[in-house]
């Protein structure tokens, strides 16, 4: 009797045993490399490690120095500007392009390829291309001046006040195509019947998009948001290729601060403190949002 009960209700631990064994490597990777690495970094950010990590704790010294450094404040400000604008513009432009593409236009494939093509290039290539385009001696400025408008000035990469917008342009050029594709996939997922129903009710097209289609595309927007946001936080190579943080320190970003201080300045402690701050910033934004999105009561 009891033996039968046991046989009928097997130990929870051994259910789907194959799947569990198969996922052990990934679990180990996640725990040891991601979580372990993160904890290690946080712990060592409280030490005065220089070239080699060593456990001699100095409290919050590294953080005090970090927040006193002009370069770090400039980096954070730049990331905020770049982040907010990238989020807004790539979503808006991406959605508009997708909506236009969805009007059953001719040569849709061709256009789609053209718009998506920049995404096939790495940030380094993108950065170099835009460095040349925005260079006052060879790029847009010289072309316009050659056309006769000799007082035309357009040199964002050499003007400390607007350099971050020069980087933003390159970032948008590279990333918007992907957003467009994701949005287009979302739009194609909307049932044609809904459009017909809206037309029957006499709702204008723009209102249909805004109040019916976009709310229905919620899942696509969330996916896109995550992809864009992760791209924003780790922006590094684009800046290195385009300006290497210049002019002066006007286009520095946090990821570059981390790299430069860990390796060039041979000050691991300072680099770890900076990367921990990046993690904290991300956590502050992600955790409440993730809680609202995935946590709480389950949606039906």
């Amino acid at each position: 009797m009891t033996g039968q009960t046991i046989a009928r209700r097997p130990n929870q631990l051994f259910r789907n045993l194959n799947a569990k064994i198969a996922s052990i490597p990934m679990i180990l990777t996640a725990v040891v490399i991601f979580l372990g690495g993160t904890l290690w970094t946080v712990v060592y950010s409280f030490t005065n490690s220089k070239l080699l990590p060593r456990l001699s704790f100095v409290g919050l010294d590294q953080y005090e120095r970090l927040w006193a450094a002009t370069r770090w404040t400039v980096s954070i400000t730049n990331l905020a500007i770049y982040g907010v604008l990238t989020l807004i513009f790539s979503l808006v432009i991406g959605f508009l392009l997708a909506a236009l593409m969805d009007q059953k236009i001719r040569f849709e494939n061709t256009f789609r390829t053209i718009f998506l093509y920049p995404f096939a290039l790495s940030f380094i290539v993108t950065g170099l291309v835009w460095q040349w385009i925005l260079n006052p001696e060879f790029g847009i400025q010289s072309v316009v001046r050659a056309l006769g408008w000799t007082s035309f000035t357009f040199d964002p990469l050499y003007n400390a006040d607007i350099v971050i917008y020069g980087i933003l342009i390159a970032g948008l050029w590279q990333g918007t195509g992907l957003v467009m594709c994701l949005m287009l996939a979302g739009l194609r997922g909307i049932d044609g019947e809904i459009w017909k129903a809206a037309r029957v009710d006499g709702i204008p097209t723009w209102k249909t998009y805004l109040f019916i289609v976009i709310p229905m595309m919620r899942a696509v927007f969330v996916t896109t948001l995550v992809i864009i946001a992760s791209g924003i936080v780790r922006v590094y190579d684009l800046v290195v290729a385009q300006t290497s943080g210049g002019p002066g320190i006007a286009s520095e970003v946090p990821a570059k601060y981390v790299y430069d201080y860990m390796f060039q300045a041979q000050n691991l402690g300072q680099g770890f403190a900076a990367s921990t701050m990046m993690l904290v910033t991300v956590a502050i934004i992600i955790v409440p949002w993730a809680y609202l999105e995935f946590g709480g009561k389950k949606r039906g």
Partner: peptide
Amino acid sequence: ADIQKQKEDLFAE
């Protein structure tokens, strides 16, 4: 190297 880097940041700015 650490001090050199901070000095570089200062003069770049």
